[in-house]
């Protein structure tokens, strides 16, 4: 499916003139992410406070740990009260919760979604699988260490971690943002080549641009 859509092809204009299409180059902006340095002083502090109190989570169940995220919305845990909300689109989200193991196939989607989120953005990695592969450490199609591929802000251990652990992890993330250390996006931009090399090493059918705007 994907290969034929990434190769160059010829189409004909209404007047019959041939047009060469280079899908990756023509359809996608590509390029590299930019580093957007934080402002200094009180404005950035205020902004960081707002960011930490309004964490919009990208609702993307990547692994089995996603099952543990659902209870957060229930009356028992009610994560809303801390300013967490679920958004259906990466454009508007600021927190990407990687919920457990990442298969190679999912990783590509995760990378694309992550890159489509706007700076500043944060990654919460959930469960042991994201740290060392967990029970899938020797699997042929899952990754072992997430932070080889994406800058992770918070790891939450466990297989799987309980919702309470998640809340604690989010709390940790909040503190980190407030302290001005939530610069994962800039880190990703700075070390873009390294991340990209790692990603490409594991994803064979690379049919997306190097950077997804």
């Amino acid at each position: 499916m994907s290969k034929e859509h990434t190769e160059k092809r010829i189409v004909y204009s209404p007047d019959g003139e041939p047009i060469e299409i280079d899908p990756i180059k023509d359809y996608f902006e590509g390029g590299r992410p930019e580093i957007r340095n934080p402002r200094n002083g009180i404005i950035e502090k205020f902004a960081n406070w707002a960011r930490s109190e309004s964490l919009w989570i990208l609702g993307f169940g990547t692994g089995c740990g996603a099952i543990e995220m659902r209870p957060l919305m229930t009356p028992r845990f009610d994560a809303y009260r801390f300013g967490y909300q679920w958004r259906p689109t990466p454009r508007q989200s600021s927190v990407f919760v990687i919920s457990g193991y990442l298969s190679v196939k999912t990783l590509k989607r995760v990378i694309r979604s992550y890159e489509q989120m706007q700076n500043p953005k944060f990654v919460v990695a959930l469960g042991s699988c994201t740290i060392n592969g967990g029970m899938y450490y020797d699997s042929y199609n899952t990754i072992n260490r997430l932070d080889h591929y994406l800058p992770v802000d918070v790891y939450i251990t466990g297989c799987m971690p309980r919702p309470e652990a998640l809340l604690a992890g989010f709390d940790h993330l909040k503190r980190k943002i407030k302290e001005g250390r939530g610069e994962g996006a800039n880190k990703y931009a700075e070390n873009f080549d390294w991340y990209k090399a790692n990603q490409k090493k594991i994803i064979k059918d690379w049919d997306i641009p190097d950077y997804n705007w």
Partner: peptide, 9 residues
């Protein structure tokens, strides 16, 4: 094609 497309392209 730089649109969010359910994580796909």
């Amino acid at each position: 094609f730089d649109i969010v497309y359910a994580a796909e392209r």
